[in-house]
């Protein structure tokens, strides 16, 4: 037997034949840990309370070892699920017609393609283009376009309310407003082809925005003057976070009409549009558009 083999044999004898670990001791008596609830409604820590006045970031949530308390995990998973569900929802067949809207579709054929091919989501399919040419009013001031974007949930939720409110706002200012329509599998830039096909001075697409944690129902609006293919993001003005906890649709509609009015008056849009006279009335629609902070709401209630 080689030296190594002998050593291995000796080692094996030294390790013995018994269970490699001693038996576990008796189970200790376990006291339930203190109840941790997020957001801490009953006994908020001082730092959590102070934080909630300045930020919507989830601060003061404590820790268990280096990880989250169970309640935090459930709230977080609920917020994540809401966001993922909003992205995964497809605009229902027939929804546009049922709501009296001209049904349009981009060149995208299914939901996965929609996520992977933004280029196809920016172009109308042939049938939609023909429908537009046959049925839509031409030569108009403003063409509002409702669309699914990255949240069909938002589109089917408050989309019609926003579309109707914007239409009323524009008509009350004496502008001609295009045929109400709704586009499926649509990206922002689809407004360029639609707007130029109906010869609109301003195209305004209202679409579901990319969900954030716990917010699957926000709409964004993008406006462009003299829509045509080849316009870029710097030619557009936008407003985001349109929903009841952000900017409510009716309030948003008024600001969007103001933006369209500025475009019609100055015959331009995007970075060239001067909004200095309107900035106090426009709020967050005056800039390139940021996402206003919104209060986080508790999503999970057990047993209620």
């Amino acid at each position: 037997m080689s030296v190594t083999r002998a050593l291995i044999a000796d080692l094996r004898v030294a390790m013995g034949q018994a269970d490699p670990l001693p038996p576990a001791g008796p189970a200790p008596s376990i006291t339930p840990p203190p109840r941790r609830v997020f957001p801490a409604r009953r006994t908020p820590s001082r730092s959590a309370q102070e934080a909630s006045e300045h930020t919507t970031a989830l601060l003061g949530i404590g820790h268990v070892g280096t990880r989250y308390a169970t309640d935090v995990v459930l709230q977080f998973q609920a917020e994540l699920a809401v966001a993922h569900e909003a992205v995964a929802t497809v605009l229902e067949e027939g929804w546009a017609e049922a709501n009296g809207l001209l049904p349009l579709q981009s060149r995208v054929r299914d939901h996965r393609e929609f996520l992977l091919r933004p280029d196809l989501g920016r172009r109308l399919d042939e049938a939609s283009l023909q429908l537009l040419q046959r049925r839509a009013a031409k030569n108009i001031d403003v063409q509002p376009i409702l669309a699914d974007g990255l949240s069909a949930v938002a589109c089917m939720g408050s989309g019609k309310t926003l579309l109707d409110a914007v239409t009323r706002q524009c008509e009350s200012r004496g502008w001609t407003v295009g045929t109400p329509m709704c586009a499926r599998f649509a990206r922002v830039w689809l407004q360029d082809e639609i707007g130029s096909a109906v010869d609109a001075k301003v195209a305004m697409i209202l679409l579901g925005e990319r969900p954030g944690l716990g917010t699957g129902d926000g709409l964004s609006a993008y406006l462009v003057y003299e829509p045509k293919m080849g316009k870029t993001d710097s030619d557009r003005n936008m407003m985001s976070n349109i929903h009841e906890r952000g900017t409510p649709p009716v309030e948003a509609a008024e600001r969007l009409a103001m933006l369209a009015g500025a475009m019609l008056a100055q015959e331009t849009s995007g970075v060239e549009l001067d909004l200095s006279d309107l900035s106090s009335q426009l709020g967050d629609a005056a800039g390139t558009g940021y996402r206003a902070p919104q209060k986080r709401v508790r999503l999970v209630e057990v047993g209620s």
Partner: peptide, 22 residues
């Protein structure tokens, strides 16, 4: 990364302090 949607400096600092404490 204590980002804040409106650059509220107090909000940024509160988040930064919390991060440092971890």
């Amino acid at each position: 990364q204590p980002n804040h949607p409106t650059d509220d400096v107090q909000g940024i600092l509160l988040s930064a302090r919390e991060g440092l404490s971890y």
